[in-house]
């Protein structure tokens, strides 16, 4: 686990949302935290380098800028490496992971439109010879406050 100091935690706690929309957002964050702009930038870069944050950016509502779906496959244990590599290699697959279940390979397909999503699922099935379960989002329930991190 990545060691973080108090200032790093505040950066993560206070700025999972509401990065200021002004010309110098990191300077605005620095003012709130009592730091210099250069230190905020350096800390964010360090948090990104060590993987504590995946990026500073906009989180877009699903199916807004494009179309996506969640898909799952039941892959025989002895084919998991091969099939996982084939699926992960598809450019439309932006997230691919194993889960402990009969349906053991899960992936998210994103494309500009529904046709692109369907084509990617068809290619995943054709390349592996395995059926693909398509589980598109039907409704999303949320109060989006970011995910509360418990530090202790």
């Amino acid at each position: 686990m990545v060691p973080l100091d108090e200032t790093d935690r505040r950066l993560l706690d206070d700025f999972q949302r509401d990065l200021p929309l002004e010309p110098r957002p990191y300077a605005a964050m620095a003012r709130e935290l009592g730091l210099e702009e250069a230190e905020v930038i350096a800390r964010l870069a360090a948090l990104q380098d060590c993987g504590a944050i995946s990026r500073i950016g906009a989180v877009v509502r699903p199916n807004t800028a494009g179309r996506s779906t969640l898909a799952a496959m039941a892959v025989p244990a002895d084919r998991l490496e091969e099939v996982g590599a084939l699926v992960a290699a598809l450019p439309e697959v932006n997230h691919c992971y194993e889960r402990e279940h009969r349906l053991n390979l899960w992936f998210v397909v994103t494309a500009a439109g529904a046709v692109g999503v369907a084509a990617a699922l068809a290619r995943a099935a054709a390349a592996t010879g395995l059926p693909v379960l398509d589980l598109p989002l039907e409704a999303e329930y949320r109060i989006d406050l970011g995910f509360p991190l418990r530090w202790t």
Partner: peptide, 27 residues
């Protein structure tokens, strides 16, 4: 860019702008 991002936030097309934590790396 800032005006459009303001609007996309207000409309909900952009959920939030900020640090996206990596749960796994954070333990």
């Amino acid at each position: 860019v800032m005006a459009r991002m303001h609007r996309l936030l207000a409309e909900g097309a952009i959920r939030r702008i900020g640090a996206v934590p990596n749960h796994y790396a954070l333990g």
